[in-house]
Amino acid sequence: MKKLITASLAALIAAGSMATASAADAQSRYDRNDRQEQRQDRRDDRRDDRRDDRQELREDRREWRGDRREWREDRREDRQDYRQQARAYERWQRAERRYNVGRYYAPRGYQSRQWGYGQRIPSAYVNGYVIRDYNRYGLRQPPHGYHYVRNGNDVVLAAIAGGLITAVIAGLFN
């Protein structure tokens, strides 16, 4: 009898553990499927995020393109304004008052000519024609590194180092 009770008890314990194992197995399968679905959902979310990122990038590129176009238009307008100002430079750089000074003789090998903004004046002009008493002729003090040079009846503000002309005051002298 003892053997029968022991055997039935062992069978009962074995059956209980098998039921627990199959329940645990079922639960782990469920968890595994659930995990796989969660992974799939995360992948889908990542794909959606990537799509959104690409869409935002496209929109940003369109905005950048628009910004570049506006920038180019602004530069074009600035260049047009600059050209108009350069053409009209002599008109608004006319001397308000004329001064009587000695006769002008062009440097040897040169003729008196009209100089313009952005040109370079030869060093031969600079040697004998620098105007040092600019206050006497109603001129402001030249910036550091520049000086006034007489050319015929005009005065040119040029860089000392390279002779680049930054201003022309036409008709200052008689």
Score class of each variant (00 low, 15 high):
100 N>K: 12
96 E>A: 13
136 R>I: 14
111 Q>K: 00
1 M>H: 01
89 Y>E: 09
80 Q>T: 08
167 A>I: 08
157 L>A: 01
45 D>H: 12
17 S>V: 14
102 G>R: 12
130 V>H: 08
139 L>K: 05
70 E>H: 02
136 R>V: 15
155 V>T: 05
115 W>P: 01
30 Y>A: 14
158 A>M: 11
18 M>F: 09
124 A>I: 02
144 H>D: 14
39 R>K: 05
162 G>L: 05
85 Q>C: 04
118 G>A: 07
75 R>M: 00
99 Y>L: 13
121 I>L: 14
18 M>L: 13
99 Y>D: 12
111 Q>V: 01
164 L>G: 04
76 R>D: 11
22 S>I: 12
59 E>M: 09
85 Q>M: 08
115 W>V: 08
160 I>W: 07
48 D>A: 12
83 R>W: 07
33 N>R: 15
55 Q>A: 09
108 R>Y: 03
37 E>P: 00
30 Y>E: 15
18 M>D: 02
14 A>M: 11
144 H>G: 06
170 A>R: 13
86 A>K: 09
136 R>K: 15
8 S>F: 12
80 Q>D: 05
151 N>F: 03
82 Y>C: 11
89 Y>P: 00
26 A>T: 14
141 Q>G: 10
87 R>K: 14
84 Q>F: 02
30 Y>P: 09
58 R>W: 05
1 M>E: 00
4 L>E: 01
123 S>C: 06
77 E>Y: 02
43 R>G: 06
109 G>T: 00
82 Y>V: 13
49 D>M: 01
146 Y>E: 10
63 E>I: 13
100 N>M: 08
50 R>D: 09
130 V>S: 10
33 N>E: 11
147 H>T: 01
66 G>M: 14
22 S>R: 13
158 A>N: 01
160 I>K: 10
162 G>M: 02
106 A>K: 00
52 D>Q: 11
173 F>L: 10
146 Y>W: 07
94 R>F: 06
22 S>A: 04
76 R>L: 14
128 G>Q: 12
91 R>Y: 09
34 D>E: 06
75 R>E: 09
90 E>R: 13
100 N>H: 14
98 R>K: 04
67 D>H: 06
93 Q>S: 15
166 T>L: 06
161 A>D: 13
33 N>I: 13
7 A>R: 00
53 D>H: 12
162 G>V: 02
145 G>N: 06
166 T>G: 02
88 A>Y: 05
53 D>K: 08
86 A>Q: 03
9 L>Y: 07
65 R>Y: 11
163 G>L: 02
134 Y>F: 15
174 N>T: 01
46 R>L: 14
17 S>T: 15
136 R>H: 15
143 P>C: 10
89 Y>M: 05
75 R>I: 05
164 L>Q: 02
99 Y>G: 08
159 A>D: 05
166 T>Y: 07
156 V>I: 12
104 Y>N: 00
96 E>D: 06
149 V>M: 09
131 I>L: 14
65 R>K: 10
56 E>K: 07
95 A>T: 07
23 A>G: 08
15 A>F: 09
34 D>H: 12
136 R>L: 11
60 D>K: 04
32 R>K: 07
155 V>Y: 07
55 Q>F: 03
58 R>V: 09
146 Y>I: 08
77 E>F: 03
63 E>K: 10
45 D>N: 03
100 N>D: 13
144 H>S: 10
148 Y>C: 08
